[in-house]
Design a protein around this nucleic acid. Structure first.
Lengths: 384, 384
DNA sequence: AGAGTCTGGTGTAACGATGCAGCAGTAAAA
DNA sequence: TTTTACTGCTGCATCGTTACACCAGACTCT
């Protein structure tokens, strides 16, 4: 505790705690300006800060939002988290970070934890097509913004979706390659289980069609022989995570072990990309250009191309998606589709905040931002 | 609120709330096993979860630790955050993430926020040599683990430092290059203002000396014509961040703007590395091998080498530090010094936890872990 | 038998902030 | 003069959990 309470402020200002509370909560129209003045000075003098726990206990509200990302080990999510934090902090909100590894089980557990902690707004980034696992929470009143995902049938009424236009973005990427003269294209992704990935795939195929190429002739590598949305870590967030005390620590510790040795979903993106390149380049008629689902994957693809003794760009062109910092640092620098992360983060927070503060349920929306193609050295004209 | 309270559990089990509380807090030795059993079943049946706000208000304790990193946009910190979260979550703790950009002003503000929120344990990752800006908080009782930093004169008594042995690590890197026949080495860093950087530099020079090379003949690029630890964002974390209500939102919004447009400190690492390479390779007697302060910087150096029309490895060898995921994906794959992040995160959390829970102040310590050289393709024998 | 001790609990007053109901005092309306 | 209305402020119960103080009953010791 910083020690000083609302009572001390009240005493210092010569009013009752209620009046101080009124000032703190913007109800200052009901008092003389000079009273308000006195109170504000007392707050200043004593360095008073309201106790959040007490506030939350009383009101049920809390100035914290949750952020559930696949894994902050992926720089794309790290950067997004950074932006969201900036937006939130400026309004006095904190951000509680959760890594879901795109596992619906884990996701649901996290959200229940957050709900139990009194958190009423969450940015969800897993892009899963079905939000069924999360519906009960939303029904109870959890404010939710889905990031990197567009509206789907069966979505909760109140859901706000914020995403780049993935169809356009992937279309931009594919068209760029076609314009460079490439005709034998490949699309590389992890499992196509998430909405954004499906959309990107659709953008890719549409661009091919528009250019008069049969999309079914394109190479598609979606790697997943194993099911990535399985039931692993069913016991995760072990019992102690419920805050029930130390007795369950044994269980909890087991969960740690699992957690730390998991594949870190999006880390694998790079590994998958690499494996994809290996396989694709062994094809009888290998692709001359590859569209990757995201930059991490693209960097993996680049590594795989080099493993095969070929040159990225000169021999095989590669386009990524996201424009993470490292895209510009890769060799060759990666052509990619940029997402306007800062704007998206600001929009996500703004929506969540009004949702939380008004409590209003003004209905779901989808916000679609324009992606931008950033052309660098990993794409080269066919035969150029 | 999940709705169900300790009173309902008590009623269900036919005991008083006090007894339920005793179970929850591990004081179950004082009751009949069957009583405990009944209570646990009631908890289970009702799906009861203790209300954290109430708990915190009553005890002053809270199951949240703070994590202050330079920027989670840097994958190294993202990965660390991921590991720390895993360790914390398994014991029922949450992690509140803060990006300091290595700015002491901002750091202090964050810590004060966290303190005011009742958080009593923090992992600090800025590696600043002086912790003076943070001392008042530690004196008030904030538990602190400094990550990626070793003990310094003037440190608070209770501080626990957890770090890889930077001297050894950088020595490993330099020795590796010397063993490959390189004699003209360069050391590239941002400002050498942080402890770990100074230590890495010392390891570098020691290795040179050991090989009979005058360290002062080595090229050192520490880039900083401008002072990176300045006073920017002096108004940051604006007044509203204190939770004083909506009235100060104007100020807060101004702060956002600054925040979102800042250089993202460690993102610059790559930019600095690139600039460094440009400059160094224009020297009359350019280096044949470069040790970079970390992997992001090293990747920038690699980009700079290519910009100059040279080949990484064949023409100029590069060693990084950290072993981030992308080190293995770079072209060529980056030789680097690996930090055992998972162990370090686990150790950091374990210390913080005992500190918080025992309240004990068992004196500071430094924990030094062994780094490991990972040899990849970015280092090649001189003239090989 | 009376004092002391142990066992297995319970009662209650906080922790700090909130917000409704209410209350003086004054002013205008009836 | 009473009624009604309004202004500016205060009292108090309350949120859910905790931990100290205490208590009845049974048992032990001298």
């Amino acid at each position: 505790m910083s020690g000083v309470t609302i009572h001390q402020v009240a005493a210092e200002a010569g009013v009752s705690p209620s009046t101080v509370s009124n000032v703190l909560n913007g109800r200052s129209g009901r008092m003389l300006p000079q009273t308000r003045e006195r109170i504000e000075q007392a707050i200043e003098r004593l360095g008073y800060r309201p106790n959040r726990a007490a506030r939350q206990l009383r009101t049920g509200r809390i100035q914290v939002i949750g952020l559930v990302v696949p894994s902050v080990a992926n720089p794309f999510w790290g950067t997004f988290a950074r932006h969201l934090e900036g937006a939130a902090l400026a309004e006095g909100y904190h951000v509680l970070l959760c890594n879901s590894e795109r596992d619906p089980q884990r996701e649901r557990r996290y959200l229940e934890e957050l709900w139990a902690d009194g958190i009423r707004g969450v940015v969800l980034c897993s892009s899963l097509p079905s939000l069924a696992h999360v519906l009960p929470l939303v029904d109870r009143g959890l404010g939710m913004v889905a990031f990197d995902r567009t509206a789907q049938a069966g979505d909760p009424e109140s859901l706000v979706n914020i995403s780049v236009d993935n169809v356009v973005g992937a279309g931009l990427a594919a068209k760029h390659l076609l314009d460079l003269g490439h005709r034998r294209l490949a699309f590389v992704s992890g499992s196509l289980g998430s909405v954004n990935r499906r959309e990107r795939f659709r953008g890719f195929t549409s661009a091919l069609e528009a250019a008069g190429i049969d999309p079914s002739s394109a190479l598609v590598w979606s790697g997943a022989s194993e099911e990535p949305f399985g039931d692993r870590d069913a016991a995760g967030l072990g019992r102690d995570a419920a805050g029930l005390g130390r007795d369950a620590a044994g269980l909890g510790r087991a969960a740690t072990h699992e957690l730390l040795h998991e594949p870190f979903g999006d880390r694998d993106a790079a590994g998958l990309g690499r494996a994809a390149a290996h396989e694709l380049l062994r094809e009888p008629d290998p692709p001359t250009a590859i569209v990757a689902i995201n930059d991490m994957c693209a960097l993996g693809v680049c590594a795989g191309i080099r493993d095969a003794g070929l040159r990225v760009g000169a021999d095989v062109s590669v386009v990524g998606f996201d424009d993470i910092v490292l895209a510009d640092l890769a060799a060759p620098a990666l052509t990619t589709v940029r997402q306007p992360l800062a704007e998206m983060a600001a929009a996500a927070f703004a929506h969540l905040r009004t949702r939380i503060e008004t409590g209003g349920n003004e209905g779901g929306r989808s916000i679609l931002l324009r992606p931008e193609l950033v052309i660098r050295a990993s794409t080269v004209a066919r035969g150029g």
